[in-house]
Nucleic acid binder design. Structure first.
Length: 184
DNA sequence: ACGAGGATGCTCT
DNA sequence: GAGCATCCTCGTC
């Protein structure tokens, strides 16, 4: 088992923290883009009222019940797409929401996809749009593409925990993690 | 800088 | 019919 697989099959909170600083790469529409993950949130399963998996499997969240390393993409507010990394044992349905990243490659394509020069990857909807990710990639494996989590040394920095954003239930759990990279 | 409001589609009650 | 794991634009201060 690789270090990444071991990370993803552990607890979702530890997995969330461990994903910070790792690289996420997409090769979609003939375009390659890559970011460093800088903000994530942990979502549990039946034990977490804020999680999409709380009510059991359904049409939208089916991929959340797949194996660790599955990409779970859902539509938010009818408008945006949001990406999650499925973690834990198969069927446990915990996942890490990818909220923000820092562009490493393909930044020009991100600007084109976003239709603007700023705010490329800060926010779950923006990050997915910048990387070209939509519902088409829901259920794919982050080990096989077209969206990959890349192994290798994580970028160092200070990790700050806080409450999850935009939820009403279990809002007190400090399961949002941000990575403050050196120099900003 | 900051807050209000609208867009828009799917899931669940 | 309500409620979203959001983002953008346009008012004010």
């Amino acid at each position: 088992m690789t270090g990444l697989a071991a990370l993803l099959t552990g607890g979702v909170v530890a997995a969330a923290r461990g994903l910070l600083g790792l690289r996420l790469r997409s090769e979609i529409g003939g375009v390659a883009c890559e970011v460093i993950l800088t903000e994530v949130e942990a979502y549990g399963g039946a034990d977490d009222p804020a999680s999409h998996a709380f009510g059991g499997p359904g049409n939208r969240n089916a991929s959340m019940f797949g194996p660790a390393g599955t990409l779970y993409v859902y539509r938010s507010y009818g408008v945006h797409w949001c990406m999650n990394v499925v973690t834990g044992a198969r069927g446990r349905a915990s996942a890490v929401l990818l909220r923000a990243g820092r562009p490493l490659a393909g930044e020009e394509h991100m600007r084109h996809r976003r239709g603007r020069a700023d705010c490329l990857c800060n926010g779950p909807g923006r990050l997915a749009q910048a990387l070209g990710v939509s519902g088409e990639q829901d259920g794919t494996s982050l080990f096989d593409g077209p969206v990959w989590l890349l192994t290798g040394p994580a970028a160092g920095g200070q990790v700050v925990a806080g409450p999850r954003v935009g939820i009403t239930r279990a809002a007190d759990r400090p399961w949002r993690f941000r990575l403050i990279l050196p120099g900003g």
